[in-house]
Design a protein around this nucleic acid. Structure first.
Ligand SMILES: [Zn+2]
Ligand SMILES: [Zn+2]
Ligand SMILES: [Zn+2]
Ligand SMILES: [Zn+2]
Lengths: 131, 131
DNA sequence: TAACGCTGTGTAATAATATAACATAATTAA
DNA sequence: TTAATTATGTTATATTATTACACAGCGTTA
């Protein structure tokens, strides 16, 4: 895994912001929040996001167009991601369940396709919201 | 399940187009293709898409912002979807595997979340592309 | 019939998300 | 030290999706 020390300036700024956030952040909200640190254009944000995704430091929540820090310590799983998303408060938690990831990583159907990556999003109501 | 006869004019036009397509369609490509049938504005397309998704006739491929017809006959599974996506040719196939859907529908982790829906996207190379 | 709720339509404007194109600097590899 | 690779900065633009408002059609029901 690439060390954080190897990240570029913009990548560090943006990873730092995402890691400190309590929930998923959207690209333009990230942009807004890093303007004071000299990042002025969407592309600067998207480029950093792309890199951070590539090295597994963050993940994109596809159904929300939002980005979260990886919560699996020393994550190797940018290619095998699962999240649970509360449809009421929009809280997102990264699911880390070894049985699930093994099951999905080994999944094969009759299509003859070779999978090298998956993304799973569960939806429902979190503990708080289902009260 | 709602029958196609109950669909509105715009909904029928758009479902028909998606069902006849060999792959996922994007919203503005749909718009372009139904202009001759009197559908002129993005919102008309998105409204029909929303309804068709709601009743399970189509699904959205979240990672691609594209829409496909449901291939599970008499589909009740708009709340439990799985797709395999070829990263080379962008071909998309709906995975229908009873074991998988049971496994995921019953999945529960320690988070205390009650899931009522999931979406799973597998990525890889299809038969043709991995040659 | 009239009032109402509900679903769908039409239209214009705009918001939100993401990328293309081009120029340059910094870092790494050969 | 040349070349290749990676990152940056900037402007413009493309793509995806929603807000807001006006109105039409249909079934319920008062
Ligand atoms: Zn992770
Ligand atoms: Zn919640
Ligand atoms: Zn389906
Ligand atoms: Zn392919």
């Amino acid at each position: 895994m690439q060390k954080q020390e190897n990240l570029s300036k913009n990548q560090k700024i943006i990873l730092d912001l995402i890691e400190k956030s309590s929930g998923p952040l959207k690209a333009y909200s990230i942009l807004f929040n890093v303007k004071k640190q000299g990042i002025k254009a969407p592309l600067q944000v998207y480029r950093a996001l792309d890199k951070l995704i590539e090295i597994g430091k963050i993940h994109k929540i596809e159904s929300r167009n939002a980005f979260v820090a990886c919560k699996n310590s020393n994550c190797q799983v940018s290619k095998a991601t699962a999240f649970s998303i509360c449809e009421s408060c929009e809280d997102v938690t990264e699911v880390s369940n070894l049985k699930l990831s093994k099951y999905l990583s080994n999944f094969a159907d009759k299509s003859g396709m070779k999978y090298n990556k998956y993304n799973l999003e569960f939806f429902g109501l979190c503990k708080n919201c289902k009260k």
